[in-house]
Each structure stands twice: as structure tokens, then as C-alpha cells.
Computed example of a mutant assay.
Amino acid sequence: MKAPTVRGGTIFLVLVTLLVFTILVKLGLWQLDRAAEKQALQQALTVKQAAAPLDYQGLLALAESESLTGYRLEVQATPVDAPIILLDNQVYEGHVGYLAYQVMRVETESEADDPLLLVELGFIDSGLDRQKLPQLTKLSREVTLSGRVYQRASNPLSQHLLAETGSPMRIQNLNLPELSQTLGLPLAPAILQPEAIPGSALPHPWQPIPMSALKHQGYALQWFSMATAFLILMAYLLIFKRKNKESSKDK
């Protein structure tokens, strides 16, 4: 009467082994696919950064058809009446702080009302007291700015602006449509990170790809290693169970 139970237990163990092994392998393959995507993105960034700088009209035209991250831009910009924006929960070289932004009007030959440009002023440490926001000196005159542009990926867990009133204005996510609505100002769909800002020494972290292809490949190796280890362990258990079954029969 015990044989069917033992056989049924073996079949169940085999099915569980195949299911878990398949899931682990698929997770590893998914990470390899992500690594390939990141490699393609990095190649596209390299091509964009090697090209000549765009003018503002050219950048806005490209926004309708492709990602703007990585393109170089050179503009004449003038400050507008808007608060400094502080993007919360940023980390740079082990320090927690903010990325600061200022809204600027780009001088163009177009007669149309172009959207305003959000310019990254740089990273600033938040300090120990989060109730006290850092104060930055705004750009107060027309300047020539040259640098690269980026579009931040939305956070799937929380993508709303969550703006706090005041000047500077602290936000939790750089949601440009919501920021535009909050400020009551039209904003371009990308941010300019200047190579240098007159009178400012704030650093400008550049991480257009949140996770590198190499990291995805490392995660893939971990999933494949787990799948191999799990398969070896379950094979050992099946062999051990079979030997115990044969020993029971001999007795």
C-alpha cells in the first residue's frame, strides 16, 4: 500500500523541480534580454554624444519621435520667475541630497512661444536637518549653456510630483507634466545638464542608464547558478529517496 504513495511523492518532487528550475532559468534569460537592451541604449548614447550639438528647435522636433537622452544642446537662456526645484532622495558619492533645477527661457528665432527649459544646477547635500532646505543662488542673467540633455525614467512605484509649497520647491519625482501644471508654465520634455555653470561648482551626476548591462549579466549569472544548484540538490534528494526505497524493499 506504501508504493503508490512513494511513487506519487517522487512524481510531485520531479514536477516541483522542473517548475522551479524553469522559473529560475527564465529569470536569467530575462536579465540577459535586459542586458542586451542596455547595451543598445549605451551604443545609441555614444552616437548621440558624438554628434554636433543641437539647437533648441531641433531638440523639440526630435522629442516627438525618439528619446532625447544623450543629445548635446547649446542654448542662450534667460531666467524666468519661478522657484528653484529640489528633487529629493538623490545620492552622489555616498551623500544624500537633492538635484537642483532652475526654469529658463531659451532665446530662439522662432516667433512661437517655445516651452521653457529646465536646467540642472547640480547636486547639493541635504544636511542633517531635512526641515531646512538648502538655499541656492539663482542664475540671474542671460547665459550661454552647453551640455547634454536627459529624460528621467518614471518610477513604477511612485511617479507623482508630490510637490511641497515654498521656495525652493521640494519634489519627490521629476514628473515634468505635473511640474508644468504646478508652476503654470510650459516645460520642454527634457532637462539640460550643463557642462559648466558660471559661478557654480556643484557636481552634475550623469547616470542616463540606471543599471548597466554588466549588472544585468551579473544577475543573470546568479539566476543560472541558483538554477544549477537547485537542480543538483533535487537530483541528490531523488537519488537518496530512491536508494532508501530500494533498501526498504531488500529488508
Rank of each mutant, 00 (worst) to 15 (best):
G9S: 10
A44R: 14
P115V: 05
F123G: 04
K132C: 00
A227E: 08
G97K: 01
V6K: 09
D113S: 08
R152T: 02
V91N: 08
L214D: 14
Y56N: 10
V25C: 12
L19P: 06
T182Q: 10
D129P: 01
D114W: 12
S140F: 12
E195L: 12
L117N: 04
E142K: 14
H95W: 01
Y150R: 10
L192E: 07
E64V: 07
T17S: 13
A63D: 11
D88N: 01
R170F: 04
A61S: 11
M211A: 05
T144K: 09
P208A: 12
I239W: 15
S67M: 11
R170N: 00
R141N: 09
D114I: 07
Q151V: 11
Q31D: 12
L32Y: 12
F240R: 15
H95M: 00
E120I: 06
R170Q: 04
K138M: 07
L27V: 05
Q172W: 01
K245I: 15
V20N: 04
G70A: 13
Y71F: 15
K249Q: 13
L179C: 01
E246C: 13
Y236A: 12
F123W: 08
N89E: 01
L60I: 09
G94C: 01
G70F: 11
S200A: 05
V14E: 06
T165H: 08
K38A: 14
A196P: 09
S212F: 09
A52H: 14
Q159P: 01
L238H: 12
V103E: 00
A227F: 08
T69Y: 10
P83M: 02
S110K: 10
T228W: 14
P83Q: 02
A40S: 12
P83K: 02
A196C: 03
I124T: 14
G218Q: 08
V103F: 00
